[in-house]
């Protein structure tokens, strides 16, 4: 069971209360980009074994999206931060 403390409402939330949003920091390109750049944006993800930056939503709680650094092997949550914030942990692994 993945448990994450939502940085907005401060509640510890269970997997049931959360929605997974895939890899974080995928920038949406302008319409003018090449077909290849656009399809990369649509489909290509890093899908690592290990440290992964991703989006989660406190969907059954306060409804807010936030970012998480998770180890995809152990499910350990290394950091959680709001969209308007910067993560120390994320910068270190980047």
């Amino acid at each position: 069971m993945i448990l994450i403390r939502c940085p907005y409402c401060g509640e510890l939330r269970t997997e049931d209360e959360l929605t997974y949003g895939g890899e974080a920091n995928i920038a949406r390109p302008a319409e003018t980009v090449s077909d290849e750049a656009w399809t990369d944006y649509l489909f290509m993800r890093t899908n690592p074994k290990g440290i992964h930056q991703e989006q989660w939503c406190c969907s059954a709680g306060c409804g807010q999206w936030f970012k998480v650094v998770r180890d995809t092997v152990s499910h350990r949550i290394l950091d959680v931060w709001k969209f308007e914030e910067v993560s120390q942990a994320a910068e270190e692994v980047a």
Binding site: L3, C9, E11, L12, R13, T14, D16, E17, A60, G61, C62, G63
Partner: peptide, 25 residues
């Protein structure tokens, strides 16, 4: 129907939260 709260002392009196109970919000 759910944890109500995962905190040690539960949901404090005078407080509110949204969560799932019996599989519904």
């Amino acid at each position: 129907g759910g944890f109500v709260s995962l905190e040690r002392d539960g949901l404090a009196v005078g407080h509110a939260k949204r969560t799932l109970v019996g599989n519904i919000p």
